[in-house]
Design a protein around this nucleic acid. Structure first.
Length: 852
RNA sequence: GGGCGCUUAGCUCAGUUGGCUAGAGCAUCUCGUUUACACCGAGAGGGUCGGGGGUUCGAAUCCCUCAGCGCCCACCA
């Protein structure tokens, strides 16, 4: 045999992938319906983690399936420069060498990181191959490729021209360690307990968590209806501070909660989002007190140069000394925003940045979502997304980092309000109309350019791919990037192309360890998908990770699932060995004949499997599709039909069903199925990957009757096995029957039930099977002593049967049931009752025989 | 404070529009050295579907309520 006894994935996988690539199997054929998926680009610099493995598995299953259905299927791969993420990694490397990013210019840093990423890119590409993802490498796109950059520029320009983007001085979430601003969504909030300080503040007493921001106070606010303080509203008051007295205004604002603290709030517009809003409403002066490195500036007087936390301590001490500190509530619960990379507390910092006006974009997206233009799996995420879009605020797209796409905007050196759009971003200074302009040193938020990913990768606006493949069929990604990415792709897709970027969104949850714990380096429970591939094979990794999972839920990933999947791959391998052994050297007809009830049964069952698996995959129910296939292959084909073929071979059909199994299993287990296909190649065979989904064209007239027809044999076998097991019979004994059975049928029963003989008799001996009926009576030939043990079993069966009958009778005696339930259901219930009663009679007859 | 979700066998989870005796994988128990496979085969046990109430001929599924868990969003200093 060409196929060895045990499937060793590592021996074949690389060759199979190379074969697919060489044959351009993953290039869309440009005929048939379009089915297009773009891979969410993983970080080009990193290793693929378990989440990527899940994404690639789901996408590749979907795309391979649609390819086999004869569609124009595309899975487009990409890699992300992952701006801030990658720079952080690179900074850590610099730190190890005792250097800092601030030792270099942004240009130098950009060049260094480019080389750093280039080193790791091929590594990542090979990992995609090892996971078996059938991507079209000729369309491989990097997020810094020219066409992506040009798209970002064009979008920026269009927004600029249409007034949807503005540069303004606003409060921005700022990390003083990484020295860059963030979008709202990039801030990670954590619950914290902090002291709440009650201070003497002019005529007031007020509560604050941040006494060190006192130097930036320009007002105090009270609620307009708060009678305690009405007399102060509109006045300027003098306040004794740690650096001496200063003055602030008193304003009335709805934002103040009179029941919190003392109902008085100090207003620090430059360093608090709430206070900034108040300052806008009351046109208050704004005073900055923090430098970008997180230390206090000259406004803080003798506290200048201290970090926020140092200053807080020192200011509190100073307040105490001056008798200005009234009391401290040590157990105040609050939420603190921190940098999602380094954990540094995010400071609201007043900065000039580019902002995208979001509400008009959001409204378009909401309209499209409400019109049902995008289907969601799970559906609940759509509602959440709409909710999010309603509350979306303007988006800060400027980042003060090096690794990213430079913002194509220049500022007049003589007039800070004069900004122009220009793509000469490699120049620092340009001359336009005799005026000198300096480039904005910032780069785009990575999400800004990646929002265009679905159409930018397809060469919008003029590319053939765009015309062919847009909108994408499905966007599969983790639910954690629903807001930062999916929402923005929808908004920008609508804004730029006028259409939604994809018609279906499938969101998977977090992949957890097998105990439901989040994977993390510190816990040491991180599973590397490539290790799993090494150990169990790529197919096992893929099938293991999709087993028993549904959209939107977090999913524990355990080795037991992988082992199960590995065993299934081995099962596929071994049924193939069996088939190879049977058919080698024989001439196999492409169109089989159905000769007996077993043939008709397996063919019907195959057809049902192909339909159901297809339906599940069409509806993105991956796990259910896999399970249905698994049970057809293992239970129906391997355990029944293959055994039958040992005594009643129909090689044409055996080969046909086997081929169909390879075709259906291919999306789930591409490597093992292609390996078998190539090894057993018959004339005319090319690649399984570009083969086709089973076409079941034989006429099987009445499948319900056919099922019944084979089930008679099946029931006999099952009962004999059950009896032998429960009576402890291990020897092969004979079965007798009275009635009609063909030679084929007796041979099948004999083999499957492990009997010594199946023969026709005139007189009954031994234990009568309950599957007997008038036409066909059967007896298992056991001695009297063993048969006596059977009486107990019979009594158990009788009780069970009585229960079933009582149940069915109760249902049928319910008039409402007869009246309201569908007719077919009632009819079915009647039939079941009749069947159960017949069975009860058999049991009673048999019991009577024993009592004689 | 608002929103969303989860609770089904020992474990991890499926269960599409309400409809037969609620399923799977793993685990457990019994038996088996059959020439595709011990990464196997045959058989078995195991659940009052978180609690309570309601709608319905019929509820794991729809509604209400209670309890526990989780996630996301939010300007109480």
């Amino acid at each position: 045999m060409k196929l060895p006894k045990v499937y060793e994935p590592a021996q074949y996988e690389a060759d199979m992938y190379a074969l697919w690539e060489k044959s351009q199997a993953f290039k869309p054929g440009m005929t048939g319906e379009n089915y297009s998926v773009v891979v969410p680009p993983p970080n080009a610099n990193g290793n693929l983690h378990i989440g990527h493995a899940l994404t690639l598995a789901l996408e590749d299953i979907a795309v391979r399936y649609h390819r086999l259905k004869g569609e124009n299927a595309l899975l487009l791969p990409g890699a992300d420069h992952a701006g801030f993420e990658t720079q952080v990694v690179y900074e850590r490397q610099l730190a190890k060498e005792g250097k800092s990013r601030f030792d270099f210019t942004r240009e130098e840093l950009y060049a260094q990181i480019w080389d750093f990423v280039a080193l790791n890119r091929s590594n990542f590409e090979n990992q995609v191959r090892r996971l078996g993802a059938g991507v079209d490498w000729s369309r491989y796109t990097f997020t810094l490729d020219d066409k992506i950059v040009q798209r970002a520029y064009a979008t920026f320009k269009k927004m600029w021209d249409e007034g949807r983007i503005y540069r303004g001085e606003r409060l921005v979430n700022y990390c003083t360690f990484h020295r860059t601003g963030f979008a709202d969504i990039e801030v990670e909030y954590k619950d914290a307990t902090t002291p709440l300080y009650y201070l003497k503040y002019g005529p007031f007493e007020l509560a604050t968590t941040r006494p060190e921001t006192k130097f930036g106070d320009t007002a105090v606010a009270v609620h307009p209806d708060d009678k305690r303080y009405t007399k102060y509203v509109g006045k300027v008051i003098e306040v004794e501070g740690v650096n001496g007295p200063f003055t602030v205004q008193v304003v009335a604002d709805e934002m103040v909660d009179p029941t919190f603290g003392t109902g008085v709030v100090k207003i620090t517009p430059a360093h608090s989002f709430d206070d900034w809003e108040v300052a806008q409403r009351h046109t208050l002066p704004v005073k900055r007190i923090l430098k970008h490195d997180g230390t206090l500036n000259h406004e803080a007087g003798r506290f200048e140069g201290m970090t926020v936390l140092e200053a807080r301590k020192a200011v509190v001490e100073a307040l105490k000394e001056k008798g200005l500190l009234v009391k401290v509530d040590e157990n105040y619960q609050t939420r603190i925003g921190s940098c999602y990379k380094c954990g540094t507390i995010i400071e609201p910092m007043l900065m000039e940045q580019w902002f995208v006006e979001m509400q008009p974009l959001a409204q378009e997206a909401i309209a499209a979502l409400e019109a049902g233009k995008v289907a969601f799996h799970p559906e609940s995420k759509k509602k959440q997304l709409i909710e999010y879009l309603h509350n979306l605020r303007d988006w800060n797209i400027s980042r003060q980092i090096a690794w990213g796409i430079p913002i194509p905007a220049f500022q007049n050196v003589d007039d800070s309000d004069d900004w122009i759009y220009d793509e000469r971003v490699t120049e620092e200074i340009i001359e336009v109309d005799g005026k000198t302009y300096r480039r904005d040193p910032d780069v785009f938020d990575t999400w800004f350019s990646s929002s265009s990913w679905p159409y930018a990768t397809l060469d919008y606006p003029d590319g053939d791919d765009f015309k062919q493949f847009y909108p994408l069929s499905v966007m599969e990604t983790g639910f954690d990037i629903l807001y930062p990415w999916v929402s923005r792709m929808i908004m920008l897709g609508l804004y730029i192309t006028g259409d939604v970027p994809f018609t279906t969104v499938y969101l998977h949850g977090l992949v957890l360890d097998e105990h439901g714990q989040k994977m993390s380096k510190s816990k040491g429970n991180v599973v590397n998908p490539l290790d799993i591939v090494d150990q169990y094979g790529s197919d096992a990794m893929r099938m293991g990770i999709i087993t028993g999972q549904s959209a939107g839920n977090n999913q524990p990933f355990g080795l037991s699932k992988v082992v199960g999947a590995r065993n299934f791959a081995n099962k596929l391998w071994n049924i193939s060995r069996y088939v190879e052994d049977k058919i080698s050297g024989k001439t196999i007809k492409g169109v089989p004949e159905l000769r007996n009830e077993a043939d008709r049964w397996i063919y019907t069952s195959l057809a049902s499997c192909a339909t159901t698996v297809g339906k599940h995959l069409d509806a993105y129910r991956f796990s259910e599709a896999y399970e249905r296939l698994y049970h057809f292959v293992w239970d129906d084909f391997a355990d029944w039909y293959l055994e039958i073929s040992k005594v009643e071979p129909n090689l044409d059909l055996l080969a046909f069903v086997h081929r169909s199994i390879l075709q259906m299993a291919h999306p789930f287990a591409p490597f093992v199925t292609e390996t078998v296909w190539q090894t057993l190649a018959q004339t005319g065979d090319t690649l399984l990957a570009t083969s086709h989904w089973p076409e079941l064209t034989l006429d099987v007239a009445d499948s319900i009757n056919l099922e019944h027809e084979f089930n008679i044999l099946k029931d006999i076998v099952l009962e004999v096995r059950g009896l032998k097991n429960s009576l402890g019979i291990t020897a092969n004994i004979p079965l007798h029957f009275k009635g009609t059975m063909s030679k084929q049928q007796t041979a099948i029963i004999k083999h499957l039930a492990k009997l010594s003989d199946v023969s026709s008799v005139d007189k009954s001996t031994g234990v009568r099977l309950l599957t007997s009926d008038k036409a066909l009576q059967l007896w298992l030939d056991v001695d009297t002593k063993t048969a006596a043990a059977y009486r107990e079993k019979l009594e158990q069966k009788r009780l069970g049967c009585l229960k079933v009958i009582a149940n069915l009778k109760a249902r049928l005696s319910n008039e409402s049931y007869i009246k309201h339930a569908p007719e077919t259901l009632v009819k079915e219930t009647r039939e079941q009752l009749a069947g159960a009663e017949e069975k009860l009679k058999s049991i009673k007859d048999e019991a009577a025989r024993f009592s004689k």
